[in-house]
Every structure is written in C-alpha cells, then in structure tokens.
Nucleic acid binder design. Structure first.
Length: 268
DNA sequence: CGGCGAATAT
DNA sequence: AATATTCGCC
C-alpha cells in the first residue's frame, strides 16, 4: 500500500481516547496513512508513557473528554514538559472549545468523526514544529496498545525504493501556522513512470483518468490528480506528435525538391 | 448519477 | 510552472 512519493512514512503517533472504538478506528486510519501508532485509553497513562519514552513519539492526538484527565490538562502538561505537537479531538465543535484548544497550544482541532483525509497531512505539524522530519529511521512499524504489549508488526517491502533522508522545508510549509495545506501530489519521475506505464498498458484510446488511477494503485492519488496530470502530459504529447509530423513533412519536401519534382519554392 | 475533458483558479 | 478545482456536457 503505497502513498504518494515523498510521504513521510513511519511518523510515530500517540492516540489518546477513552473510547476504545474511536481508538481502534483512529488506529486503522493512521495505519493506512503509514504512520506508526500507539494507542492509549487513559490520559494519565499516556502522559507517563510520553514522559518515560521521550523521543519515541512525534505527535499526539488526544480526545478532549476523558474520565481520568481532561484533554486540555494533558495538552498543558505536554506543552510544559515535552516538545510535541498535539492535536485535540472531540465531537463537540463549539467555538469556545476549539478556541480553548488552540489557546492552550494545540496545533490542530479535529472534529469527530475524523475522516482519513484529515489525518493524511498531520505530519506537516511535525515538520512545522521541528523544522524537519527524518522519516528514514527504519522501515517497520510497530504498534503498541496501552499496556505495552506488542499488537502488530508490519514490515513494509519497499523494494528498491530510495528516499531522501529528510523532506525539505519549503516556504509553503512554514507559512500559515494554523491550517494545514493539502499535500499536493508531486509527479516525481518515479510516479510519472508509473503513470506512463498505465497509459501504455491501457492503450491511448482507453487511457482515461479513472482507469489510469486504478492501474497505478497509489494510495491517496485521486482521479482528479490523474486527470490534471493527464491534461498537461497529453498536451505535450500532442505537441511532440505535431513536431514529429512537421519534421517528417519537411523531410519529404526537401527530398522532392532535391529530386526536382516538388512544388516551385521560393528560396529566400 | 459518475466520469470525462476543457477551462479556470491557486 | 505545476497542480487543483470547477464546470458543462455526455
């Protein structure tokens, strides 16, 4: 299950929520996004864990309402002692609540039910906070549940894929500290290669966005993404064709001229 | 309705 | 310039 190129695989996320169902759903979605997930059903325990194992988490997502500790309290503690971006989450979208989250230092506020699209880009918060994110630490994701037993080990087979050690910090990523920009698809040569393969596999006439997208099997890549790319690539292909045809015609004309059977041409 | 391609926006 | 979004049309 691949995400678009240059996606920071392996971000270590701690999810805190007293509702086990939410926890599970969140875990699944985050996992789909290729994050490493640690789930915790009680805030005090989460806090202990975060403190004990500093530098083993990159990001915290915490529910607001929890029996043992208010999510805002957890947010406060983390802000005080640890240097981690925290995302607050609740079913209640009251502006006062959201405001409270932000003023207490949350870097984002997610409304339940959380959609996976909202999770895909949360790594940008980590980049913002730390300046960079090394997502090449290792290539296996380990999930833990709150009592520290190993739940699942997922080994990824990335074949020969090579990646840069860090993502670069573009101006676009630094500006606007509050709302996350959608991660734009980058048509790297790798990705473009897959695109071309798909098109060839389909044949020119059947190469429509949906089919191309399905053949490429890149997670997170939408039909629109492909359509947009197709539009420009198709355009340049047509240009190439025109140029080729023009060159061929030119060649023919010159040939005829040389044989003296061409049209009378002006030589100036 | 979904999906396409073209036009338009960012 | 590259990618996303919108729009009108099958």
């Amino acid at each position: 299950m691949a995400v678009s190129e240059d996606f920071p695989v392996g971000l270590r996320v701690m999810v805190v929520d007293d509702d086990p169902v939410c926890l599970l759903i969140l875990q699944r979605m985050l996992h789909q996004c290729r994050y490493r997930v640690t789930t915790c059903s009680c805030a005090t325990q989460a806090y202990t864990m975060l403190r004990e194992r500093q530098d083993t988490f990159d990001l915290v997502i915490s529910d607001v309402y929890m029996p043992d500790m208010d999510g805002f309290r957890l947010l406060e503690l983390i802000g005080l002692e640890l240097d981690l971006p925290v995302i607050m989450m609740s079913a209640n979208g009251e502006t006062s609540l959201v405001m409270k989250g932000i003023t207490h230092g949350a870097c984002d506020y997610l409304l339940k039910p959380v959609r996976i699209e909202e999770l895909r880009n949360i790594w940008q918060h980590v980049v913002r906070k730390k300046g960079t994110f090394d997502f090449n630490r290792d290539n296996c994701s380990i999930d833990w549940d709150s009592n520290k037993t190993l739940v699942e080990v997922q080994s990824e087979d990335h074949g020969s894929r090579k990646r840069k050690g860090n993502i670069e910090l573009s101006d676009a990523m630094i500006e606007d500290a509050n709302s996350l920009k959608k991660a734009r698809v980058v048509w790297s040569s790798e990705l473009h290669k897959k695109f071309v393969n798909a098109v060839n596999q389909l044949g020119i006439d059947k190469a429509v966005p949906k089919s191309i997208m399905e053949i490429m099997r890149i997670q997170g890549l939408t039909r629109e993404n492909v359509a947009s790319h197709l539009q420009v690539v198709d355009g340049s292909w047509k240009c190439e064709d025109k140029r080729r045809i023009r060159d061929e015609q030119m060649h023919l004309i010159m040939q005829r001229e040389h044989e003296g059977i061409g049209f009378p041409t002006t030589h100036c």
